[in-house]
């Protein structure tokens, strides 16, 4: 298992195989040169992290970014080359998150599946640039607002000449207490031969779901917990072991 632990923009620990090249200068640079899976853990207080990820040609990769921090600013820049496939799962359980992710699809037929789940005050910005033809993106953002403001801005850009691209984005926020939440889906498309869709939902918890769980004796607090955790975890493309780790290490930790 490849793991990189980052604290205050410094690598505190890493265990990686020869399919990953790691450099640390102003930013943390991760070069994935062959098919592999990578876990990135970001932890600590007042974090400012800049992470650059490069996916080489013809490489399939799955990356998990887990953050369990307070007052963090995280910038992630991803560059994907020709025929590369990336599944990027992010789970943030922070007190205050400002996250800015830019994904550049820099080669023909490069594909990104981006799944993002977070709890807590969040200001999330994601931009995906479809710089080449036949590039595909699937974006799923999920968040739960208890006492916090949440804002998602998802920009996807297709310049003229990038044909046969597919863009799909869906964002959903469960707003438990009528907090100020905002979703801004922005599609900047200069090419006609593109399939694009988006959906944005801000809603309270589903009453019928809650009623069903409570009808089995589970009190309201625990029923909401089950629904919220399921909503966030189910959004991520994880196997059962990874889900278990996520629950044990991040969801139940604080």
């Amino acid at each position: 298992m490849n793991i990189i632990n980052i604290v205050n923009n410094k690598i505190s620990n890493s265990k990686i195989n020869n399919k990953i090249k790691l450099k640390e200068n102003k930013n943390i640079c991760i070069d994935i040169i062959d098919n592999t899976k990578l876990y990135i853990e970001i932890d600590g207080i007042n974090i400012k992290s800049n992470i650059d990820i490069n996916i080489d040609e013809n490489v399939n990769s799955r990356i998990f970014v887990f953050s369990n921090s307070i007052d963090s600013k995280i910038n992630i820049n991803v560059n994907q080359n020709k025929n590369s496939n990336l599944i990027l799962n992010s789970f943030y359980k922070n007190d205050d998150v400002k996250e800015n992710t830019i994904i550049n699809l820099n080669g023909y037929n490069s594909n990104i599946e981006y799944n993002y789940s977070c709890i807590g005050k969040t200001n999330k910005s994601l931009r995906i640039n479809h710089y080449f033809s036949k590039t595909n993106s699937i974006v799923k953002n999920r968040s739960v607002s208890n006492n916090d403001e949440i804002e998602f801005e998802i920009i996807e850009y297709v310049p003229k000449g990038s044909i046969d691209c597919n863009l799909s984005q869906s964002s959903k926020i469960i707003n438990l207490k009528e907090n100020k939440c905002k979703i801004k889906p922005i599609l900047l498309i200069d090419e006609k031969e593109v399939n694009a869709s988006h959906s944005s939902v801000i809603s309270p918890i589903n009453d019928s779901d809650l009623l069903y769980l409570m009808s089995r004796g589970i009190d309201e607090h625990n029923s909401i917990n089950l629904l919220v955790n399921g909503f966030l975890v189910n959004n991520l493309n994880l196997n059962e072991e990874e889900k278990h780790i996520l629950f044990e290490k991040y969801i139940f930790r604080r």
Partner: peptide
């Protein structure tokens, strides 16, 4: 229930 609820994610 006559129509048991389907709950995604749980």
């Amino acid at each position: 229930y006559q129509h048991p609820q389907e709950i995604e994610g749980v």
